[in-house]
């Protein structure tokens, strides 16, 4: 182990002898990686960026729908009156220039995050449907599941049993939602950790994604509550002088729950991504201090990067589990009988 570390250290110092001195805008790099974009930058090959140009779909208030490749807006170019500004307001977003003013059109472009979302949704559907197919083709009473089914089944049953514990009687109605949410978050968390093409998008670290998930939980909780749940919400059993305050507090807490779910998942995943990117960026930040410094810091960076990646794998699972568990608990509260 010690020898391996020494070899690594030597290798990094050696490699950094050939490093070019060039200032890297670290903050920009980091925010580019965790943010959304109209193209998916995969790598650079001989100074040419290799990226997928995704379709821009916008609806202008004046000229209706426009669909075109984001290649036409590269490097600040403008097309059909649309452009992507590099400064505020609307930095990095498609805007329409109307009378010299930046106007944000209705924008449902297939961005990096949307493509990633589509791919992971298809992947998840394939995984779960293949597992379900195993159970349709085989007699589960005769055979133990093999392959994919054996891998997915324990996770499904973990969530199913969690629903059973936290919700009680009619947990079967809610278990598919909890399973879908769990697998969706888990898969996208892991896809986010993978640093190259099919992965790498920071989907579960995007507040829009976590907000939709949390809103799903919110509506599931508050649309299918029992009579007792609503009574507790608006007219709880408390001493008279608390009667006017308690409903306020209760309603407020019901509204805060989805917000906490949103922020928890979003912040955890975003912070994980930023941490890993920072550690990786140490290598580039050190370039100007000479080979010895760069090499040794690369060594440190790789060790920390490895540690953080492993930590993120743990966090990916924990956050998916926590989101699902809290959702099931909230649903369980809304199904209260007495």
């Amino acid at each position: 182990m010690k020898r391996l570390l020494l070899i690594l250290l030597g290798l990094f110092v050696g490699v950094s002898l050939f490093a070019q001195e060039e200032e890297v805008p670290i903050a920009d790099v980091i925010f580019e990686h965790v943010g959304d974009a109209y193209e998916w930058h995969i790598t650079s090959w001989k100074d040419h960026p290799v990226s997928i140009h995704l379709p821009v779909i916008v609806r202008s208030r004046t000229s209706g729908w426009h669909v075109f490749s984001s290649k036409r807006l590269e490097h600040g170019a403008s097309y059909e009156g649309f452009t992507i500004p590099h400064d505020d307001p609307y930095e990095g977003k498609v805007v329409e220039i109307i009378d010299g003013e930046r106007v944000r059109p209705l924008d449902i472009s297939i961005t990096k995050n949307v493509l990633s979302l589509m791919m992971s949704a298809v992947l998840l559907a394939v995984i779960v449907l293949l597992t379900a197919r195993w159970y349709r083709k085989h007699d589960a009473l005769e055979e133990a599941p093999k392959g994919l089914a054996a891998a997915v089944e324990p996770l499904v049953m973990m969530i199913h049993n969690m629903a059973k514990e936290n919700i009680g009687e009619d947990y079967r109605r809610y278990s598919p939602f909890l399973c879908t949410a769990f697998f969706f978050i888990l898969l996208n968390n892991f896809m986010g950790i993978i640093p190259f093409f099919p992965g790498g998008a920071n989907l579960t670290g995007n507040i829009a994604i976590t907000m939709v998930l949390a809103l799903c939980t919110f509506f599931t909780v508050n649309l299918f509550g029992t009579k007792h749940y609503y009574k507790d919400l608006f007219w709880p059993d408390v001493p008279g002088f608390l009667k006017p305050i308690m409903p306020l507090i209760e309603v407020f807490s019901a509204l805060v729950k989805p917000i906490s779910l949103t922020i928890r998942l979003f912040a955890n995943m975003l912070a994980g991504h930023i941490m890993i990117l920072c550690i990786v960026c140490i290598i580039f930040a050190m370039a100007k201090y000479g080979p010895a410094m760069t090499g040794s810091m690369t060594f440190v960076s790789v060790l920390f990067g490895l540690f953080l990646d492993l930590l993120e794998c743990l966090v990916a699972f924990i956050q998916a589990y926590v989101f699902t568990m809290l959702s099931s608990i909230y649903i369980g509260l809304s199904r209260a009988k007495e």
Binding site: V152, E153, R172, S175, P176, T180, F183
Partner: peptide, 10 residues
């Protein structure tokens, strides 16, 4: 998934 996936498995 709720129609053809999870309920079948569970």
């Amino acid at each position: 998934l709720a129609k053809w996936g999870f309920p079948l498995i569970t």
